[in-house]
Design a protein around this nucleic acid. Structure first.
Length: 494
RNA sequence: GUCCCCAUCGUCUAGUCAGGUCCAGGACAUCGGCCUUUCACGCCGACAACACCGGUUCAAAUCCGGUUGGGGACGCCA
């Protein structure tokens, strides 16, 4: 068997969104699984809407996800000569014809049909023009497009879809579609096929919205005398109102960039995307890259479309809760060194990174991440919720400040007293630091919790966190003593 | 309007091709509980679905037909 070759052909008319990312991922997985190649082809023939910025966004998005390609990016506009040659070949062989209907005529016919609730297709006005009529119109300088001449056959046109099974439709249902614009520029349906043939694509895995295109393209392969690739159409990703997800109507929440900028772990997001419409057939949800490549199959892609359950304006979930869950899982279980590299980038961006975290304080750095990661949702939390571990300029949240500190005015003396005792402690250990707190609480006849929660807030700015004495040891005597002594500042600013 | 596709908990899904082991399993979310100085994590538990109607069969989530619902396509966009 020849090598499998797949492609991801985005049109650069916006950022990479999750639907596109999922398509890219499935193609990538299948290419990897079969030891084949993945080609990136930018379909930029719509010059009006294509942009360099969008191309960059797509490439950056794929890079962030870790979806690498073996060839490309190729640009469709670089192969215009191929497309034109194919169109000429079809014209010459009688598989296509010139159509002189104007866009205005067609538009008004379409609108009329729509209003009258009649079928929409092209009425084939120019299909049977005699050679003299064509010559006359051309001599008169009337512009024309080239349309594909759908064969007049009885029976059904069809192909075997790897995901949906046999797909068929009557020949009479297929429109004579335009393959070349009146300005001579070939259109998607043709370009796409010509490029896939040239790139020797063996498997076309794309969205279900292409299903009707596929029927037409099957005809193009036939007319061009080429062998059909394997087709597989993936169900679309819908929004919570069951509408197709689009860049236009959903904004940043469906952009891959959004997940990068909000501290998602690339593989966690891939894992989530992979499970949106595919399952291994068992209860496994977490897959390493190797496992996913090994277990992935086209046949197990679900036929019904999946809903991307994002929560708009929900303070608790910035996106689909399951996507967050996957992120949390990886955040908590991934190899700590790998997490360290990711968090490093976050710290650097906030000017909190210190070189010693990579050298003599490396153990401290990684231990600290291991201590605090259990409560975090994204990479961003390390510099927001976890800021107190890396800097003194952390925010103290109002709720715990009120509840754990301001409520007890005596903390202004208790905490500095605790600081003094800590300072004189010869053994600054878990046991000793805890003992000292409990001892002080007993002397003051208060619950240890008052001291503990007060110090947690003063020292980390947070209502919740790891075990208090783990924090004490992690931050170290000097910082703890300093922050405890400073408790007065919270009262003074009232 | 025409054509194509789909249909299991709120969401992602297992089970459907090879009908019985499924009064339907897992995960997320939600709600309780345990743990705890806090909050999480973790663990335990609860809630919650075979769209509907017929048919075939000893037996249907599973096969067949229809209905309904949903999605997609119908561009000189890709």
């Amino acid at each position: 068997m020849t090598e499998t070759r797949l492609r991801f052909p985005p049109s650069p008319t916006g950022y990479l969104h999750i639907g596109g990312a999922r398509t890219a991922l499935y193609n990538w997985l299948y290419a990897k699984k079969t030891g084949g190649k993945l080609v990136l082809r930018i379909e930029d023939t719509d010059t009006g809407r294509s942009s360099a910025e969008s191309i960059k966004g797509i490439i950056d998005g794929l890079k962030w996800l870790g979806i690498d390609y073996d060839e490309g990016p190729y640009f469709q506009t670089d192969f215009e000569a191929d497309h034109v040659a194919a169109a000429q070949k079809l014209l010459a062989s009688g598989a296509a014809y010139k159509c002189f209907c104007t866009k205005e005529e067609l538009d008004s016919k379409r609108e009329a049909a729509l209003a009258a609730k009649q079928p929409l297709g092209y009425d084939r006005t120019c299909r049977h023009l005699a050679a003299e009529e064509i010559a006359a119109k051309e001599a008169a300088g009337i512009p024309s497009v080239i349309r594909f001449k759908v064969p007049e056959r009885n029976g059904l046109l069809g192909y075997d879809d790897k995901i949906f099974g046999r797909i068929e439709a009557a020949y009479t249902e297929i429109d004579d579609f335009v393959i070349v614009r009146s300005n001579g520029k070939p259109l998607y349906l043709l370009c796409n096929v010509v490029d896939d043939i040239r790139d020797r694509i063996t498997h076309i895995i794309r969205g279900q919205d292409h299903m009707t295109n596929t029927l037409k393209q099957v005809l193009l392969y036939e007319a061009l005398g080429e062998q059909l690739p394997v087709f597989g159409h993936m169900p679309l990703t819908l929004d919570t109102k069951k509408a197709k997800i689009s860049k236009r109507s959903h904004g940043e929440i469906v952009a891959v960039q959004f997940y990068r900028d909000n501290g998602f772990i690339p593989w966690a997001f891939n894992n989530f995307l992979a499970l949106l419409g595919w399952s291994a057939g068992n209860d496994q949800e977490f897959f390493s890259k190797e496992e996913l490549i090994r277990d992935f199959s086209l046949e197990r892609i679900n036929k019904s479309s999946a809903i991307f359950n994002y929560k708009k304006d929900d303070p608790k979930f910035i996106t689909d809760p399951k996507a967050i869950y996957f992120n949390e899982h990886y955040l908590r279980t991934m190899e700590i060194g790998e997490l360290g590299d990711m968090v490093r980038k976050e710290l650097e961006a906030e000017n909190l990174w210190q070189e010693c975290y990579a050298s003599d304080r490396k153990k401290w750095y990684l231990d600290t991440l291991a201590l605090i990661r259990d409560r975090f949702h994204t990479l961003k939390d390390f510099t927001s919720l976890g800021r107190a571990y890396f800097a003194d300029d952390f925010m103290v949240e109002p709720k715990p400040l009120e509840k754990n500190v301001l409520k007890f005015a005596e903390l202004q003396t208790w905490l500095p007293e605790l600081a003094a005792r800590y300072e004189n402690l010869s053994e600054f250990t878990l046991e000793e630091t805890e003992r000292v707190v409990r001892e002080l609480a007993e002397e003051l006849s208060i619950k240890p919790g008052i001291l503990i929660n007060g110090m947690r807030t003063v020292v980390t700015g947070q209502l919740a966190g790891p075990s208090m004495f783990d924090i004490v040891l992690t931050l170290g005597k000097e910082i703890i003593v300093r922050r405890l002594r400073n408790v007065g500042k919270f009262f003074n600013r009232q």
